[in-house]
Structures are given as C-alpha cells and as structure tokens.
Design a binder for these strands. Sequence first.
DNA 1: TTTATTCGGAAACGACCATTCCCTATTATC
DNA 2: GATAATAGGGAATGGTCGTTTCCGAATAAA
Lengths: 184, 184
Amino acid sequence: MDTALDRALRVFRERGYHATSIGDLTAAMRLATGSVYKAFRDKHAVFLAAFERYTAVRGEQTRSAAARGGNGRERLRNVLLSYVEHSQGVEGRRGCLVVGSAVELSAVDPAVRARVSAQLETNENFIAGLIREGQADGSIPGHVDADDTARLMICITQGMRVVGKARLPLDGPRLVGVAMKLLA
Amino acid sequence: MDTALDRALRVFRERGYHATSIGDLTAAMRLATGSVYKAFRDKHAVFLAAFERYTAVRGEQTRSAAARGGNGRERLRNVLLSYVEHSQGVEGRRGCLVVGSAVELSAVDPAVRARVSAQLETNENFIAGLIREGQADGSIPGHVDADDTARLMICITQGMRVVGKARLPLDGPRLVGVAMKLLA
DNA sequence: TTTATTCGGAAACGACCATTCCCTATTATC
DNA sequence: GATAATAGGGAATGGTCGTTTCCGAATAAA
C-alpha cells in the first residue's frame, strides 16, 4: 500500500492535482478504481496522504544531509546543497509537492493551504535552528538575524524548485557558495 | 478586448490553468462561450495570450522600479523590494503566472515551458545587467559574480512568489536587507 | 464441506468539461 | 432603404471526469 502511495505521489508531483485523473492514479498505483476508493475516501484524500508521505520523506532527507556537517555552518551548507541537487535532473523535473500545492491549490483549498504553511514554517524553523547552532559553535557570526535569514533561505529553496521545474541548470557549489554570503 | 484578457489573466493567476473552466473564463471576461472561441482558437490560446500580457505588464513594472534608483545597487534593491511587494497581500495571493505555469504546465506543455524559460532568462539577464551597472558605477564590488548572483536572485524572487501564495507574511525591507548581503 | 466475509476489478452513472454550431442583432455598403 | 457581412450570445454535443455499485474470487470460520 505504501508503494502504491509512492507511485501516486510521483504522478501528483509530475502533473499536479487537477491534471492527474483517477485513471492516471489507478494506472500508476496498479490498482483498480474500486480499490482506490476502498483505501481512500476520494481523490482529495489520496492527495493528502501523498502530501504527508512526501513531507515525511523529504524531512528525513534534509535532516540526514544536515547530519553530515561538523558545525552549524557546514550543516546549513549541506542542506542547501541537498536542495539544489533535488531541484535538478529527473528529481527536479518531477518537482516539489509543497511548491506545487502552494501554487496550484493553496488559494482554493484550505486543508492544503494549512499543510503547506505548516510545512514551510517547519522548514524555516529548522534552518533558523541550524543558524543558531552555528552561532553557538562559532561558525556563524552572532550579528546574523536567524529568523530573517531563514525566511530568505526558504524563498531560495522554494525558488530553486521552481526554476528546476523549468529545467534551467543549477550549479550547486556555485549557487550555494553565493548563498553562504548571507551568513557573513 | 484587452480588458477581457486582463480579467482572464486574473482567473488564471488565481486558480491556475486546469482549474479554470471555460465557464469561469466567460464569467470573468463577461463574454459568451462562442465569443471567446471567436477571439481565440481554444482555451490554450487564451492562456498563452494572458501569459504574454502578464510578462509585458510585469516587465514594465520592474523596469520602472529599477528606474527609481540612482545607481546599480539602488536599482537592484528597488527591483527586489518591488518583488516582495508583489508577493504580498492581494497581489501575492493572486500569484505569479510565470511561477504557476512553471509548476503546473512546464512539465507537460512544451509551448508554455519555452515561454517560462525565456522569461526566467530575461529576468535573470536584467538582474545581471543591474549588477554590472553597479560594478561600473562603483556601488557594487567588482569581485561579485554577476551571473551566479543573478541566478540566485531569480531563485529568491520566484521563491517569494511561492511563499506569498501560501500567505506567509514577508517583510520587504528586512528581507531585502538580508538579500543585499549577496552584493558584498 | 459449507458459510460468511473481505478484497480487488470492471462496468455504469451523473456531472461537467472543452468545443462546435446556429441564431440574432448590429454595422457597413451599395 | 435593402442587403451583405460580422460579431456576439447561447443551446447542443461528444467526451471525460470523479464516484458508486455490483460482481466474482479468495480467505477464514464453523
């Protein structure tokens, strides 16, 4: 069942909510129509479940990227690099479900909007936490405003997903190198 | 006719392509079904015309924001501030059609993808040009890499539209203040 | 072995979509 | 003033959508 949800997730990421039909979903999930409606109340419920799974997986990925850093600054750099990698190539073309939901649904779907906002705030708090860690361990200057910088970095990461979806090439080290000036 | 297109543009920005029906379009444009199909070949053509109009209007807006600056650095700051303003409030909730098209359509619609890529590159070149102007007039250090910084700033601007659509508040002066560190 | 129950599959249904067609005013032309 | 031409409005249409319902197979209980 989780593997079926993963397949649904991929379709939602590629095509968005409205452009994926139940037919697309059943084909991707290798399930019949009735079975999907046995497992989920409706298409919206499938989407919400896929969203939840996506944020869980992505959260784990960025947390593990952060773990590969010796201090706050390195952890933050690794997180940003991880975002660039995920915004490129096949994964980038597939797109970010949070960005997609924000753009396509948050204006008309309160349930989705709430989840998108919560996820953005979670990510922002995570980044702000890394900045404060860096300030505590001396790798980031104390005069950096953690909250403002974190919010700008959220804009950067979400923006990378947008331009990655448009298939513009992104050079990880160069881009992150520039972005790290925000921690000066 | 242009005012009808403006009304269509607003609906496309709010709801995206797939979620706006011909009925939504005719209601917004105050036109009957047949009249829309007299003026445009199909829904896709309406969207493309709206896209073209959107990029023209937005280009004029950011160019005039840039003009209100005495040197390259100030022009760039004004452009960024203008982006934050447009990402907030009613306008922010309405969303950016370039971002929306990139996320919802660029994966499956080559015509849209070409226009989105072209627009992103135009914006990026404009920003890179402002950076070089600043370097020529001495307001921006010469060691700043214009291309890399411009690409990151494109990520920032597109990202602001995403979080603005999700209705997170954005403080213009604070955010831009942090972003200007990229020109150090 | 028989019965009850759960599970997946496929056909059926009503609603709504994009598109086409036709009709009616209104304008321009002679 | 009559007529041709055009623009706009709205009903009709074929197709597809999301959802429901029903049916058969497989499994567990008795």
